[in-house]
Each structure stands twice: as structure tokens, then as C-alpha cells.
Simulated assay, not measured.
Amino acid sequence: MNSVNAQVSIVAHRGGLYFQYPESSMTLFNSTASSFAADTVVIEIDIRKSKDGTLYLMHDPSIDRTTNGEGQLADLGDGYLNSLRLKTKDGTITSDHIPTFNEVLTFIGNRNINLMLDIKAPVHKEVLEQVKKHKLENRMLVLTFQNEVTAQVAKISQNVLLSALIETDEAWKSFEQIPVHNGRRIAYVTTKTPAKLITALLQKNVLIMADVSEDIRSGGKPLHADAYRSKVNAQKLDILISDFPIEARDALRPEK
């Protein structure tokens, strides 16, 4: 995945936490990508399946928080879902609809956008089949948090980047046993991950990724530029997930 410099790729969590736009909306994705200009941004998206079998972008099981509708997405038909509009965080109803996964894959085709896939329902095979159809496997990073899911994704595709939560030596040993092509394995680390383990992973050509979570850890505001740089340096990160990707990108740009 290309990055804003030779060291760190920036991931926009749900497209970014910019209050004038609804989360996970096409308008937000376009704005964030435009702000990155020639740089490549990775956009994190959450995927669920409707009652009719269509893959939509939705973080919560329910559509109540982010749309002007009600109900569990898995129980709702496409006709109803397509009639709804997304809301901003303050509840303002916008003209944005709920994007389908296929729509997003088409959207990123000729743009400097890669995707991080957080697949909320057990539909990994269906998701990756769509990715293959669009010939975009080399631009996907798949998040996994359970060993059996990690193994399943690895079996479906060896061309995507594959991440697993690594906080202990035992978690790494489990991940290491799953066949993954060299350079395609990502360790999602936290403050619990020992520095010694991170160093060992880097020696094994494993990419290191962590999140900032400014929405819950920084009062919904971007960090000071030095804080982004300190986190990257402290955990030796290759990939940084941020609620404020534009600010994180600016903080990590090489000084001229």
C-alpha cells in the first residue's frame, strides 16, 4: 500500500471523523481522498449484508444511529435501505444514501484509495469474491480478530493484506501458523503489545499497525502533531489508523 511517505500509511477510520459529513458516506470518502491529493489514503469500512443479500457499509448492526430509518440491517430489504438517508453525528439528515460495497469498489477504481475491510457478518467469501471481480485484491487490507476467521480469509485469498490482533506471543504464534504470503501479514498492536514482540515482528517482515481512536481518547479532536509522530515512533508503525486522517497525514509528512 502506498503511503504519504516511505514509512507510514494513513487509514481513515470510517472515512474520517469530520462532523459536516456522515460517517462511511460517499461524500466523506470523496472529500478525504481529495484532501490527500496525489497521496494514497486507506479508507476503513464496515460491511454487513441485507435481507436481500446485498453488501452495505454500516458499522452498527442497527441503522438507527446513522440513518433516518430503523431496524437491524440484516433484517431489512434493499428497497427500504436504498430509500434512506445518512445522518451526521448531530442528527442532521443529509442527501447521502447508504453505500453498497460494490459502489465503493467502483468508486475507488481510478482513485488513490485503498480499502481496509472490517467485515462484520460472516460473509468474508462473498466480500472477497466482489473484490476479485473488480480486480482489486492488491488494494485490500482485511481486519480479523478471531483465529478461525483469519485462517478463513487466508484460504480465500493470498493477495490481500491480512491483519490479526497481536497483543501476546501466543497470539502471534497462532497467526504465524496460518499460511500467508511473505509481506502480506499485518500485526494490529495495542498498548498491551510488548515492545520486544514488535521488534521481533519487524525482523520477520511483518507490518505493524495501530489505531489512534481520537474520538474516544482525545475528546473527538485531532492530536497535536507531535503526538502522532510519537506514537508512530514508539510502536514502529507502518500503518496508522486515525479518525482525523488529514491531520495525521500532515503531522507525518517528511520535513522539507
Rank of each mutant, 00 (worst) to 15 (best):
T67G: 03
V232E: 01
L28I: 03
M209E: 14
A225V: 11
T150C: 13
A12D: 02
G53W: 00
I98W: 06
N82C: 11
G220M: 02
G77A: 11
G220P: 03
Y188I: 13
L161S: 07
N82R: 13
E247W: 03
L28P: 04
S163G: 07
F145C: 01
M140I: 14
D226T: 12
R184Y: 11
F19P: 11
A251H: 02
I239V: 00
S9W: 00
I178E: 11
Q20W: 09
L117G: 01
N5Y: 06
V153K: 03
S242Q: 05
S25C: 09
T190E: 03
S35M: 14
I208C: 02
L115Y: 00
A234K: 15
F29N: 08
L84T: 08
K204A: 06
T66D: 05
A74L: 15
R184H: 14
P222D: 05
L141R: 05
A121H: 14
G79W: 08
D75K: 13
R139S: 10
S95M: 13
I198A: 01
V142H: 00
P245K: 08
L161C: 01
G15W: 06
H59V: 00
I63L: 09
E70M: 10
N112C: 08
A227E: 12
H181Y: 08
T67F: 07
I166D: 04
L84H: 08
F19V: 13
D215Y: 15
I156E: 00
L223A: 00
G16V: 07
L237V: 01
L128D: 05
T88W: 02
D215S: 14
K49L: 00
S213L: 15
K173P: 02
S163A: 06
M58I: 07
Y18Q: 04
E137M: 10
L202R: 15
E148W: 10
G53Y: 04
K192A: 14
A234H: 14
N233W: 10
L223G: 02
N205F: 01
L57C: 09
L136S: 09
S218N: 15
H124G: 06
R111H: 10
P254L: 14
